[in-house]
Amino acid sequence: MRIESRAAALRSHTLLTVLSLLSVLPLYWMLVTALRAPNEIFSTTPWPQNPSLDNFAYILGGVPILRMLWNTAIVATLTTIAQLITALLAAYAFARWKNKWSQALFALLTVTWLIPAQVVMVPGYLLVTRFDMLDTLAALVVPHAASAFAIIMLYQALRAFPDELIEAAVIDGAGHLRILRSLIVPNLKPALASLAILLFITSWNDYFWPLLVTRSQDSAVIQIGLQMFMTQEGNQWGPLMAAASVASLPLLALYVVLQKQIVDSFLRSGLK
């Protein structure tokens, strides 16, 4: 028994070590390449011989990468806030008023899961041009101000909320907004925070919609900026890896701080 379980533990460690290496080595190589001196880009030493920030300096001088990061931060923050507010209001309505109409609307929400972005892209693009929003940050936020996923997640959290407490607040004469603000939001803080993390990361990493409505470097988010850079200087591996590193560092930093919460919120969205 003892030997058997020690062998099993060894097997676990081996497998997990292999999977861990496979997960981070590509990113490690990205950083190593970015930090190599330009004349050592093709070197295969496991770390840079003469670490240099030349590649980073090169991209900072060439593309408005800081501007793009700033754009991405604004878009991701505003999208997250908008999605949280619209989802909170809608989830509250679904939890409080239950009838055949609300059920039909809820079913309609789940249908959005089945509509690939590529199927509705042409009319969406036409709407953006009609509202004169092409190539603006508004075009990246406004169409994504509501998320069916966020509504469903918050509705599930709200369903677990004791009805008696809401009833008590209603008897006390509290209006709906007041109930939301001073009863529900304070008590749903963990669920809201976990959802906010998911929405922020999703928005930060979004690629397809920005690809559709962005034209210029100045209104590009970092994902599009990275692709523009690759198209222009595809085989400048050092600067390209530096740009990829800059594009991922903000989320990686967030991950270092909130690692447990981030993993938990992703897993919770998958485990019902």
Partner: peptide, 10 residues
């Protein structure tokens, strides 16, 4: 959590 575009270029 790594952006797909980053994954692609790496």
């Amino acid at each position: 959590i790594i952006a797909p575009v980053v994954v692609a270029v790496v």
